[in-house]
């Protein structure tokens, strides 16, 4: 089976390392970028199967990344946002722009893997 590609956008290297470990253990191929500008650059080269992005990042926020993917690139790949800030307005804004899911930090491995798998399945069946 083809390895599913995940683009992980997280500026905290510690969390990024842990998430990468969990996801790779599950068989996903994980690319890591640490800010919104790098997300855009990476998307210009190739689209992953799914994006997991922090909301608060330098250059472009996770919410701006969602807007860029849905409005500029017109891509429907699943986007899961993560954040430690429980700013309801931000989260609602992200969903309105087209984010598929939201995870609050601290993140549990099982929850992350279920959400990723579910988001990928939803795209496949749509």
């Amino acid at each position: 089976m083809k390895e599913r590609k995940i683009l992980l956008a997280e500026d905290d290297e510690m969390l990024a390392s842990l998430l990468q470990f969990w996801l790779e253990k599950e068989g996903y191929e994980v690319g890591i970028v640490s800010n919104g500008l790098e997300v855009r650059q990476s998307l210009e080269k190739a689209l992953p199967d799914i994006i997991i992005s922090d909301i608060m990042m330098p250059y472009f926020s996770g919410i701006e990344v969602v807007g860029h993917i849905r409005n500029d690139l017109k891509a429907n790949l699943p986007i899961i946002l993560i954040s430690s800030a429980s700013n309801d307005e931000n989260i609602l804004n992200a969903f309105e722009l087209g984010a598929n899911d939201f995870l609050s930090k601290p993140i549990s491995p099982s929850e992350l893997l279920v959400r990723v798998s579910r988001a990928l399945k939803a795209v496949n069946t749509s």
Binding site: D12, A85, K105
Partner: peptide, 13 residues
């Protein structure tokens, strides 16, 4: 504020 936000994740972990 941004620096504080960034370090919180590691402290929680």
């Amino acid at each position: 504020g941004f620096a504080c936000h960034k370090i919180k994740s590691g402290l929680k972990m």
